[in-house]
Simulated scan of single mutants.
Amino acid sequence: MSTGLRLLLVSTPVGTLGSGRGGGVELTLAALVAGLGGRGHRLTVLAGEGSRLPPGSGAVQLWTCPGHDQPSWQHQSHDSAVQIPADGLLPALWDRVLQEQGSFDAVLNLAYDWLPLWLTPHCATPLFHLVSMGSVARVMDAVIADVARRCPGRLAFHTRSQAADFDLPGPPLVLGNGFDLTAYRFRAEPDPEAPLGWAGRIAPEKGLIDAARVAAGLGRRLLVWGVVEDAAYREAVEAAVPAGTVHWRGFLPTGELQAELGGCRVFLNTPKWNEAFGNVVVEAMACGVPVVAYRRGGPGELVEPGINGLLVPPDDLEAMQAAVLAAESLDRLACRHWVERHASREAFAGRVEAWLLAGLEPGSPAGHSLQGQTAGRTPDAGT
């Protein structure tokens, strides 16, 4: 099949594009809009009402739907049932997909939700899913396993550790993620006061309280960027450390975030769950900031010890304090070079394009050849 596909990209039903509430999905979508659009594909993005596309989206069309946000799966118990609120955004988005699917060669879903996964074998237009989280609920595990068996090649993952959460019939297709490296300025030296940094949603599963305690133990300031999803958790973080340890910077657009992030001496990553990838880890490295992370989930595949950061046993605060001191002497340019080799936006778009083209090839199991090609490691930028 030739390039120049007509693609419908469906965003998350949690928050609007540009608000930050969609977490890593927003960054991934921005990378795909630029990367796939630059490869000659005709793109339409479907998102919640009030969304806005990132600057430089060119001829990409934006469709929006009204509706109430979908409850986030990461805040449910493992045995929770599927919940769809009245006048929900999730069914509104997928009603629009079903109405418009005939105008597209493929639909690419970026949301981690039961409904689009369940629809996969029932859509007339091929429906692909870039899975954005690891295992969080039994019902989601089951529908992902079902799609993997019934519709080979329609699923892709960000990292091997994320894919390992699921019952898959064969090796996973691992695509990594991509970043606009022109948006991140390399900083050869940190700011004179050399704070530590942390970024992510302010919620318990992200483990900010651990980073705050590490910073307090070292007598350092900790700059924190992100949307406050759990106000009570933010208060608990404040109460756990001396006043003045945590400096709340809020959710910032990439340009403002990287300008502040680059001034940090070390970036901390402290997830309490199996993080699917770790976008903020790569963003820090792109600015030249070494990362100290728990050896858990996706960040454990992104940090190369001694090159762009250090890994420590999960939840070991003493080990993290020692690693921060060691990471301060790492070559900041090596951090930037790692991102250039492994996580460029252009290479990520090329991997996604290859996956879609393989899945649309008549008469062959979708993505079969690619699964064997990329399984076993997070792809390099040149793959």
Rank of each mutant, 00 (worst) to 15 (best):
residue 125 T to I: 02
residue 378 T to Y: 01
residue 258 Q to P: 03
residue 85 P to C: 10
residue 173 L to N: 08
residue 374 T to G: 09
residue 275 E to I: 11
residue 210 D to N: 08
residue 358 A to T: 06
residue 10 V to W: 00
residue 120 T to D: 00
residue 30 A to G: 13
residue 183 A to M: 06
residue 352 V to M: 06
residue 221 R to E: 14
residue 231 A to M: 10
residue 76 Q to I: 05
residue 5 L to P: 12
residue 232 A to T: 09
residue 169 P to V: 06
residue 53 L to T: 07
residue 272 K to Y: 12
residue 254 T to Y: 05
residue 102 G to L: 08
residue 1 M to I: 14
residue 307 I to Y: 00
residue 154 R to S: 09
residue 36 L to S: 09
residue 197 G to F: 01
residue 113 D to F: 14
residue 133 M to W: 15
residue 359 G to F: 03
residue 319 A to Y: 08
residue 211 A to V: 03
residue 31 A to M: 08
residue 33 V to H: 07
residue 291 V to P: 00
residue 121 P to C: 01
residue 213 R to K: 13
residue 369 S to K: 03
residue 299 P to L: 07
residue 44 T to V: 14
residue 27 L to D: 05
residue 361 E to A: 14
residue 134 G to H: 10
residue 298 G to T: 05
residue 286 A to Y: 02
residue 240 A to Q: 05
residue 9 L to F: 04
residue 298 G to K: 02
residue 116 P to A: 06
residue 359 G to V: 11
residue 44 T to N: 07
residue 261 L to E: 01
residue 147 V to H: 04
residue 160 R to N: 15
residue 46 L to R: 09
residue 20 G to P: 06
residue 151 C to Q: 14
residue 16 T to F: 09
residue 110 L to Y: 07
residue 118 W to P: 01
residue 145 A to L: 08
residue 249 R to D: 01
residue 363 G to Q: 05
residue 148 A to Q: 04
residue 122 H to Q: 12
residue 302 L to H: 07
residue 256 E to N: 00
residue 248 W to H: 12
